[in-house]
Write a protein that binds this DNA or RNA. Sequence first.
DNA 1: CATTGACTTTCCAGTTACTGGAAACCCTAG
DNA 2: CTAGGGTTTCCAGTAACTGGAAAGTCAATG
Lengths: 133, 133
Amino acid sequence: MNISTAAKTAGLPVKTVRYYADIGLVSAPSRSETGYRTYDGGAVRKLVFVRRAREFGFSIEECRELLSLYEDRNRSSADVKRIATRRLEDIAEKQRELKSLHDELAYLVDACKGDDRPDCPIIDGLGNRHAGG
Amino acid sequence: MNISTAAKTAGLPVKTVRYYADIGLVSAPSRSETGYRTYDGGAVRKLVFVRRAREFGFSIEECRELLSLYEDRNRSSADVKRIATRRLEDIAEKQRELKSLHDELAYLVDACKGDDRPDCPIIDGLGNRHAGG
DNA sequence: CATTGACTTTCCAGTTACTGGAAACCCTAG
DNA sequence: CTAGGGTTTCCAGTAACTGGAAAGTCAATG
């Protein structure tokens, strides 16, 4: 199949599919006589794998690592779990950050009357860190 | 004061302080006879304001907007509240996404034995979307 | 006065993960 | 044969910096 069919099947933009081969994340596809890229089921499955991993927030480098584990019939599940667990910690950390951010900003928004006068705790709160963050 | 003192006081890297003037986010500082940038308290306060806003996840363009409100003695607090509320919704949305991501990945990690055998629900789960995600 | 080392300047390149667009080639339907 | 897609390559741009080179400046020392 041609690139647009492969891309559609994998749920990725055509540009992205080309890009993933350019950076060597997936292997370069074979070409037709006229130079068109041609894809088979296996190539598409790898693209799906990458798309899913990216949706999980794995970086391209992590995808590279996961993909080599995906392709390695002899790797241990512990190797995979290690990477996934690290990623899980990243997510939890990000969640904590977002929560404190949300709470602090919500506090400021709540304190702001939102009327046509210039007094605004949000602006004030951005200018000087408020106590008890 | 020179740029490194200003940067330290504002809690920003020197490079970033220069960058913010380059892109016109803050006005270009005055220069000494030999071309060194010189900062006063007002300039530093604006840098602090930008740093805080960035920490809150406001984009540079939003910072530009907020900064003009910060500098405008006649703007209404409603204008500020509008921007901050939009940002608050972004954060809430991001939190929801992170939660579903976390739950799904945690489910996979939990299902993986993490031993030296190749069976791995994480890899399998990345290859094919699991039901009831 | 010379030197040393820290600080500053400008400018260019690189980062992440793509995305947009131009110019040219290919393919299929009518 | 033409029209309209799809495809190719390559270059540039995004967001928000960050790193580094080469050259000028400053303050303290000998």
